[in-house]
Write a protein that binds this DNA or RNA. Structure first.
Lengths: 191, 191
DNA sequence: GTCTATATGGCGATAGAC
DNA sequence: GTCTATCGCCATATAGAC
């Protein structure tokens, strides 16, 4: 009772090809940056020919934009599909912070992504804005509404506090990612 | 009663040439990034020939490193040749913060510098470390010792507090630099 | 649809005139 | 010391075979 016969066994692998190319593009762009990456190497890393890359993506900027958009959405879902964010405030906040820190410190790919987006934010401002709208803003908003809904914490300005928290963590990771580890900051002093 | 005659009126302009090249290199590298900058354009922007550039600097990475080192030292002196950092804590801290914020928000060149250093921190880690040692670490250390010497602020962990402060400000500037201004954060809630 | 081969131009770096 | 001219090489992008 099949509607269409199986005349095309593995026909619709176009999406796989796109995914395959984006995979290779990610590998190259995140390591060598935008200008430092050649379409030849993207094609080689993806296991296809250069002409195939150009048949699925208009040009180099187009491929780069498609990649960053995909990664931003990916990160967005990986962040907000995890925590219920409810319970005793002190414990929840502490768990949230340590989890975010460990994830950022462990995830080399995420740091490379951030590096590229920041480095290219002058030439691709719309991609930087996309990353803020998809990643940073929701994080701050979530934290803010959590802090607001817990009046017992006596926080006068939840939005400012949320921004301070996020900014401290991100900047901490960014400095630690660049220089040698140095000593680890004692985490018992944020709130 | 001059020791040496004026046989060489404007002879020693080698240093001027170096400065001239570094000026052109700054203009190009900060706008187009490392890989996006060609030595031809550096030479054109500096008003010399490409061969002259190569007579003063070994190669492209050498020129880039020399430029970043110069800019890092420059920024270092421009930061620590200003404030005495003494007086009533509340007022001093507030003035310091607003001043740092306004300076960062106004100085486009500084943000471009930070962008390039972060973007290239994977391929030039020693330059990123240099910028941390010359710029971020002294800032945190100065703040820390100031907070420590004012016991009346009752700050349990001065180093952590200093890092939080710096991280918040830098991250605030970085997000505002990328997206549209959005609303300004109310600054009455850091301490 | 996907490949190989190629057109066209810019790149880093240098040789040699002056 | 500084320039012009040039050498290889690699880049983006496309044409045409299959």
């Amino acid at each position: 009772m099949v509607h269409e016969r199986v005349t095309e066994i593995e026909h619709d692998n176009s999406l796989d090809k796109v995914e395959q190319i984006l995979q290779g593009a990610m590998h190259e762009f995140l390591v060598h940056g935008y200008a430092g990456t050649s379409m030849d190497r993207v094609a080689a890393s993806a296991g296809v020919s250069k002409a195939t890359v150009y048949s699925y993506f208009q040009d180099k900027p187009g491929l780069f934009k498609a990649l960053v958009e995909k990664l931003a959405q990916q990160r967005f879902y990986s962040i907000f599909g995890t925590e219920p964010l409810e319970g005793d405030p002190k414990i929840v906040l502490r768990r949230l912070i340590t989890k975010a820190l460990n994830q950022m410190l462990k995830d080399e790919e995420f740091r490379a992504f951030k590096r590229v987006v920041i480095g290219e934010s002058g030439r691709f401002p719309e991609l930087a804005q996309l990353c803020i709208v998809c990643l940073i803003k929701p994080t701050i908003e979530t934290l803010k509404s959590y802090l607001t809904s817990h009046a017992e914490l006596k926080i006068p300005d939840p939005e400012a506090t949320a921004r301070i928290l996020v900014g401290s963590l991100v900047h901490y990771v960014m400095t630690q990612e660049m220089m040698h580890g140095k000593e680890i900051i004692p985490m018992e002093s944020d709130r």
